[in-house]
Design a protein around this nucleic acid. Structure first.
Length: 673
DNA sequence: TGCAATATCATTTTT
DNA sequence: TGATATTGCA
């Protein structure tokens, strides 16, 4: 194993294989190199690949890590286990969840399922409809509580009403999940922990198998994940955690920066290695990054340093509005491509997915190929969710949420009243809703027409399930959608033909991904594993190498990536830091770290942009520059303000404006109000 | 029951 | 602004 390319701390991080090890890896400090070399080193030390478990944060990172190791040491690295915490949990549950009373073929509830369940629970308690009982907020509270290992409790002396509501809804939510034979994302971590507690022999089998553990992005682990690592490490404690407290950006999901500080608590006597030499960015970028991040209290003191000198300054471009901002970025990208830059060297980074649209339009207008990474909007489209609901019902008759979603989609004469009757009947009989649908004649209150429609619907589902046993998935799905007149209904429901086309494209996307899945899974491609895969990994699968494209992605999505040129856009209060009135300090710190992550993605060129005004909710509103801009040292920053007044004597109006401003600054009441 | 007009209302990040 | 919820009407 050749380690000659590593610096001394990197070398130590690679070769310290026994016992707990914490690697504090600053941005661009060669973290990925260390991880891949460490795995290669273990393999060279005759550790079998199947005894190594590496946990990453995203599926993409997992796939990349494995590929790099394979490239380094060859095909036998394929036997490594590299996955996300959630995927690992799902795998454990697939084998053992029946011991906890779930069906072997459990389903994973996605966010929209979760929301529906909570809405239903609210309705059941007759506390739905209140604006502050936002299901998403309640879901957040439930999720945080679950990860902290407790039920959501009303906090403090005067808990808000919605907190009480969350506590009340929680048991109903849990019961409903279980009744559907489903688990949520949090359960993918929590149920394995429970399993290990109640069945130590199961834990033992994993501890025996995985002799070396590696956790990437450790700063973003939450309590449950840390506990999982601790359990799996066993007595051996061969745990290598790699992370950077400055890059903790998932606090809202229960990640605890403190986990990094608590590593020593969890694993007393741990070795610590710091990687502080930066190999990625030019000095100006590093200075800017340091300016932003050094304002954080309570960080592990460290300063990245670089051996390189020179390079361009960081640019800040101020534009009048959001269209100009997008046009400017698109033009700058075009120039760089014309000068021979590779498209995949360029990236546009923003805080929220919603910000991507103007950039997409500007790039498309110039015929520049781009790729939007992440973004859930595809799965948020109604038609897509409808099709998925069909698939879920086919896979799992107990899935009431999906069943209720599609029972009258497209409209087939099963209206709200009929559905009420069916649900009431199911409840009073204590039977699954699907059973009631199978025998609608026995349901009181149904008109003959409604009963017939229900009968037809359940016959359809039954027939389709039968077909699935013998025919390929995608073909059956296509036939099903044709039979229910899905396409025609989608077309009819919208006024414009182009909107309908867009919707149907979403459906086509699902069918395409189904087909791809069938092609990939050589043996038995079953619907349930397709759905499970989909909920664990929403990124689109690619067929072989795709042409290089400019990347558009959120700051969260950019973590762990690097680009030669980075456009960090929308540097305005409200975007970065994000959020409105209540500027909670903790959130603010996380926003700052997010900004730091964005800056440090750039190798050579960092171009910051902001718009002076933006159209929000139909109104044009002035925007304030992000406070983080003030923390970038002036000597590394080059500002060009396209909204600045052209040079020349100030006009009468401007003179008046400045007189007013001056008066206000001096505390004198201004004459005009 | 189903459609269309009208009211309301939000605005993160992801496994 | 645009999407979704609700209401009213055929």
């Amino acid at each position: 194993m050749d380690l000659s390319g590593l610096n001394p701390p990197q070398h130590r991080a690679v070769t310290t294989t026994e016992g707990p090890l914490l690697v504090l890896a600053g941005a661009g400090s060669g973290k990925t190199r260390v991880i891949t070399h460490r795995i290669a080193w273990l393999l060279a030390e005759r550790v079998p690949a199947r005894a190594i478990l590496a946990v990453t944060f995203t599926n993409k990172a997992a796939a990349e890590m494995k590929e790099r190791v394979v490239r380094l040491v060859g095909q036998h690295a394929q036997a490594l286990t590299v996955c996300t915490f959630h995927a690992f949990g799902a795998e454990v549950l697939r084998e053992h969840v029946h011991r906890l009373g779930w069906p072997r073929k459990f389903a994973i509830a996605d966010t929209s399922d979760q929301i529906s369940l909570i809405q239903r629970a609210l309705r059941e308690r007759s506390i739905d409809g209140r604006a502050d009982f936002d299901p998403r907020r309640i879901l957040g509270a439930i999720s945080r509580a679950k990860n902290a290992g407790r039920a959501p409790l009303p906090a403090g002396d005067t808990p808000a009403d919605w907190e009480i509501a969350a506590a009340e809804v929680f048991p109903l939510y849990q019961r409903a999940l279980r009744a559907q034979g489903a688990v949520d994302f949090d359960d993918l971590l929590l149920l394995p922990l429970r399993l290990f507690r109640e069945h130590p022999e199961v834990l033992g089998s994993y501890v025996r198998r995985f002799r070396y553990l590696l956790v990437d992005e450790f700063q973003d682990t939450n309590g449950a994940q840390l506990e999982l690592v601790r359990q799996l490490a066993g007595e051996r404690r061969n745990v290598c955690a790699v992370g950077d407290d400055d890059q903790c950006i998932y606090g809202w999901r229960g990640a605890e920066v403190r986990n990094i500080l608590r590593f020593e608590e969890a694993f007393p006597g741990a070795t610590e290695v710091r990687l502080e030499q930066n190999y990625r960015s030019v000095p100006a970028v590093l200075e800017a990054a340091h300016g932003v991040v050094s304002q954080l209290p309570e960080r592990r003191p460290k300063k990245l340093w670089s051996a390189t000198v020179g390079g361009p300054k960081v640019q800040l471009v101020v534009l009048p509005g959001e269209d100009e901002e997008a046009a400017h970025v698109a033009r700058a990208i075009e120039q760089r491509l014309a000068r021979g830059a590779r498209p995949d060297d360029l990236a546009v980074l923003y805080r929220t997915n919603g910000q991507s649209r103007p950039f997409e339009e500007a790039l498309r207008a110039r015929g520049i190929a781009y790729e939007v990474v992440g973004g859930t909007e595809f799965f948020d489209r109604r038609e897509v969710r409808d099709v998925l609901a069909y698939l879920k019902v086919l896979a799992n008759p107990a899935d009431e949420v999906s069943l209720l979603r599609i029972v009258n989609v497209p409209a087939r004469g099963i209206g709200d009243v009929t559905v009420e009757h069916l649900v009431a009947q199911a409840r009073s009989r204590g039977a699954p809703l699907a059973d009631v649908l199978d025998a609608p004649a026995s349901v009181p209150g149904l008109t003959p027409g409604a009963a017939r429609a229900v009968q037809e619907f359940s016959d359809l589902i039954r027939r389709t399930r039968a077909r699935l046993r013998t025919e390929p998935l995608s073909g059956v799905t296509r036939a099903l959608l044709r039979e229910v007149g899905f396409e025609a209904a989608a077309r009819a429901s919208t006024a414009s033909a182009s909107a309908a086309e867009r919707r149907l494209q979403g459906v086509e996307g699902i069918l395409a991904s189904l087909e791809q899945f069938e092609r990939r899974e050589d043996r038995g491609s079953d619907l349930r594993s397709y759905l499970n895969r989909l909920s664990l990994d929403t990124r689109e699968e690619e067929d072989g190498p795709s042409p290089a494209r400019v990347t558009l992605l959120t700051l969260h999505g950019a973590k762990g990536l690097e680009f030669r040129t980075v456009f960090l856009v929308g540097l305005e209060e409200g975007f970065l830091p994000h959020g409105g009135m209540q500027g909670e300090l903790q959130n603010l710190e996380e926003e700052r770290r997010l900004c730091y992550v964005g800056i440090t993605r750039a190798r050579e060129e960092l171009i910051l942009t902001r718009a002076a005004t933006r159209v929000r909710r139909g109104r044009e509103v002035p925007r304030t520059p992000s406070r983080f801009l003030a923390d970038i040292p002036a000597e590394v920053l080059e500002v060009s303000d396209t909204t600045a007044p052209p040079p020349g004597p100030p006009t009468e109006a401007e003179q008046g404006f400045f007189r007013n401003l001056k008066a206000r600054l001096q505390g004198t009441p201004s004459p005009s109000a």
